[in-house]
Write a protein that binds this DNA or RNA. Structure first.
Length: 128
DNA sequence: TGTATGACCCTGA
DNA sequence: CTCAGGGCCATAC
């Protein structure tokens, strides 16, 4: 599916060159990660490690982060449901990304406090 | 070709 | 709580 090269304005850096090479099927890996993200139910959250695991890429949390950064806007991924280990927002509290994520989560009824969410809303690995 | 960096994670002190 | 150290690996320069 020829995804658009346009990335999210909140994270996409000017002059970023979209490269899809290096691995056998880099696009397949990205799609697997994006799919895992879109599978997170509303009102719940997951972690980068959890997303990577769900995509069949254990130990590649970093790659999950990359995938999200490179994700085209058109996919409308629920990126705000992806947090760091333990359920904490990885963005600097002063950043617009942090505020946006916070806002979106609260809009779904998720309580964000001190840049973290309650354990209960955090999706356990292997959990739906 | 080598070094640096990053929407990460875990363990241990 | 902070800090350090190791792992992971695609991109950028």
């Amino acid at each position: 599916m020829a995804s658009s090269r346009k990335v999210h304005p909140l994270f996409g850096r000017a002059g970023a060159t979209p490269r899809r090479q290096g691995a056998a099927d880099p696009n397949a890996v990205l799609e697997a990660l994006w799919q895992a993200v879109s599978a997170i139910p509303r009102g719940r959250v997951s972690t980068y490690g959890g997303v990577a695991l769900a995509a069949g890429l254990p130990g590649r949390a970093r790659l999950a982060g990359r995938a999200l950064r490179e994700a085209p806007e058109g996919l409308n991924l629920p990126w705000h449901r992806v947090l760091g280990a333990g359920g904490k927002i990885v963005f600097p509290p002063a950043s617009s990304a942090y505020r946006e994520q916070c806002r979106r989560l609260r809009a779904e009824g998720v309580v964000v406090k001190g840049g973290r969410v309650d354990r209960a809303v955090l999706l356990a690995p292997g959990e739906r």
